[in-house]
Amino acid sequence: MISDNAQSDYVNGNFTWKKPLELFEGKDAVKICAPMVRYSKLAFRTLVRKYGVDLAFTPMIISDSFVRSIKARDSDFTTNSGDRPLIVQFAAHNAKDLADATEIVAPYADGVDVNCGCPQKWAMADGYGAHLLSDPELIKDMVVQSRSRISDESFTVSIKIRLHQNIRQTVDLCRKAEHAGVSFITIHGRTPAQRREPPDFEAIRIVKSSLRIPVVANGDVHTLEAAAAVEEQTGADGLMSARGLLQNPAMFAGYSLTPLCCVKDWVDISLSQGVPSGCFQHHLSYMLEKVLPRPQVRVLNCLQSTSAIIDHLRELHIL
C-alpha cells in the first residue's frame, strides 16, 4: 500500500501540503486529475502533479473487496509521501463497507470520494456507480457513516455524480448530500445513458448556484481553452480532466501538446517506480498520439518491452 520510507515520513509529519478544501478557497479553479480505471495510478499522478495538477484521484476501488482482502489493498492502493493531496475513490453499495474502507485509507489520504456516476452495466447491476443516483438516502448514509469514523475535520468525503434527466432530481440529491455533510461534489455533465453527447454545462451551473459547498465540473475538459470555457459556463470551483490529461499530462501547465520534457519525466518516473511495460506503453501512446506521425505511433504500440520502447524513443530523438 505504501513504502516504508513514506510510512515513516507520514508518521513523523515531514511533509506539508494544502488540504482539498484549502485548495477550493483560492481564486482559481482547482485543477484535478480524474479517477481513471488502470490509468490514474501513482506514477501518472506523480507526473501530472509536476505539471499543474492541484488534486489527484485514485482509480475507482471496490470497497468491499478492499476491506476484506489485504492482497486487494496492496494491488489497488499504492501511494508515497509526495502523493498529496490525494482523494481515494470507492465504489460502494452500502455505508458500512465505505466507512470501513475510509478508516483504512485515512492515514494516507486527504479524502474519499463515492463513485455515484459510473454508467457501466456491471457496476449498476451490482448497485454501484450511477445506480446510487436513484437512492439519495443511501448516499446520505454513506457520507454520515464515513464522516463518523474520521476525527480529522479537514478529511473530505465527496461524491462524483452524473446528471438525472430532470435537473430538479439532481439538485435535490445534491442538496441532501450537502445537508448530510458532503465536502464537495463533482458533476459529470452527462446522464448515465449518454456517452458522446455534449456535456450539459448549464445544468452544472444550476446545481452550483443551488449549493454552498464547492462544485467540480467534469466532462470534455480536453484542453486548457476548454477548461477556461467550462469554468466560465459553470462557475465551478474545480475542473476535472481525464482524457485531456491522458493525451497531454502537461495540459494544466499551459502546453497545447505533450512536451518532450513531460515524456522524459514519464520515462524517469516509470523506471524509478517499476511501472509495468503495458501501462508504460499505453500512457506513451496517449501522450504521443498527436505529437508523432501515425506510423511511428503504430510502431510504438507494437513494441513488447520497456527497453524496446526506450530504444525507439531514442531513435526518434525524444530521449
Results as ranks from 00 to 15, higher is better:
264 K>R: 15
230 V>Q: 06
262 C>Y: 05
248 N>K: 07
250 A>P: 12
239 L>S: 09
296 Q>N: 09
281 Q>F: 00
294 R>W: 09
235 G>P: 05
215 V>C: 02
260 L>E: 14
293 P>Q: 05
234 T>E: 10
253 A>F: 04
250 A>N: 08
230 V>H: 08
247 Q>G: 15
287 M>I: 12
292 L>A: 10
293 P>V: 05
296 Q>C: 03
217 A>K: 01
269 I>Y: 05
231 E>T: 09
219 G>T: 05
224 L>R: 10
295 P>D: 10
286 Y>V: 01
285 S>C: 14
232 E>G: 01
241 S>Y: 02
222 H>S: 11
268 D>R: 12
232 E>K: 13
220 D>H: 03
251 M>N: 02
292 L>E: 09
229 A>C: 13
289 E>Y: 07
283 H>V: 11
242 A>P: 08
234 T>Y: 12
234 T>R: 00
246 L>T: 12
267 V>F: 01
284 L>E: 12
226 A>C: 06
232 E>Q: 13
231 E>P: 02
217 A>F: 00
253 A>Q: 07
260 L>K: 13
282 H>N: 15
241 S>H: 08
277 S>C: 11
219 G>C: 02
263 V>M: 12
228 A>S: 14
229 A>I: 13
288 L>P: 08
273 Q>I: 05
264 K>I: 12
270 S>A: 15
268 D>S: 13
280 F>Q: 02
229 A>N: 07
275 V>C: 12
254 G>P: 12
267 V>L: 06
216 V>S: 01
288 L>R: 05
279 C>V: 14
269 I>H: 07
264 K>S: 12
227 A>F: 04
243 R>D: 13
230 V>N: 11
221 V>Q: 02
292 L>Q: 03
294 R>V: 15
237 D>S: 08
238 G>T: 04
285 S>H: 10
249 P>S: 03
267 V>I: 15
231 E>N: 11
223 T>H: 03
269 I>N: 03
292 L>W: 15
272 S>W: 01
280 F>I: 09
243 R>M: 11
244 G>E: 04
285 S>R: 15
227 A>R: 05
255 Y>V: 06
295 P>V: 07
271 L>P: 15
271 L>N: 15
272 S>Q: 14
230 V>F: 06
230 V>P: 10
251 M>K: 03
297 V>M: 00
259 P>S: 07
251 M>Y: 04
220 D>V: 00
256 S>P: 01
224 L>S: 13
245 L>C: 10
289 E>H: 14
243 R>G: 11
261 C>E: 15
242 A>E: 09
265 D>I: 03
292 L>P: 13
286 Y>K: 01
233 Q>D: 13
236 A>F: 04
217 A>P: 00
240 M>E: 04
286 Y>I: 02
293 P>E: 11
224 L>H: 01
218 N>C: 07
